[in-house]
Amino acid sequence: MEQTGNKSRLRLILSLVTAGIVVPAVIALGVSVWDDRRFYIVSLLIIVASMVPMALRFERRRPAARELVVLAAMIAIGVAARAAFYMVPQFKPAVAIAIVTGVAFGAESGFIAGAMIAFVSNFIFGQGAWTPWQMEAMGLLGLLGGLIFHRRDGALPKLLPLCIFGGLGTLVIYGLIMDTSTVFTTQSSVSWELLAAAYASGFVFNVIHAAATVFFLLILARPLLKKLNRVRVKYGLLE
């Protein structure tokens, strides 16, 4: 029941634009009502403002049962994969699986999958002030993966661009978002120096995480996508 081509892309762009209006409004509100020190609340509102349209779009589309359950299975695989690697810090396959889901099912499902993997796996790793940030970061990677690599005919993407995207995305997008959240949730006053210090100290971890994403995309992306395609052909999914 997926909306076809242009219309769905238009709606996606529309909701991105709405988010683009809501976000500055929230920042303005944050700066004027609680002086500019309440970074965390403002950023949290921004994250919520960007997630709500995605969630509502998904709800309004009323996806068919098959799509829902297969999506749930992919999310569960992501959660299980993250949990299985709990003893290795940062070296986690969850982002890779979010990206693969985006590639297979499109940007919107990619966002849902990424956000949901972060949310559910935090029942194992512990919810905290970082949960919304992680949801947003992983969701964004799933969304971008879908936007760039999703083909309606299910053609497999080239591995090299996918890995480059996964590595850079994890390093830059996921890394920056999470390091910013660390500063916002543990520093009493936020300055550019502190942010720079956080990015610098987080760099090694982000590189490990990015390497993990590239590694898992290398070994998992093709088999997973092939399996998804097989299920799609066998059961006539998502037509």
């Binding site: 709800e59 695989i77 959660v79």
Partner: peptide, 18 residues
């Protein structure tokens, strides 16, 4: 958000099964 919370509860059931 009925659809998303359905997905959520299915994921919760799926993980231990996996």
């Amino acid at each position: 958000i009925p659809t998303l919370s359905l997905v959520f509860s299915m994921v919760l059931r799926f993980v231990p099964r996996i």
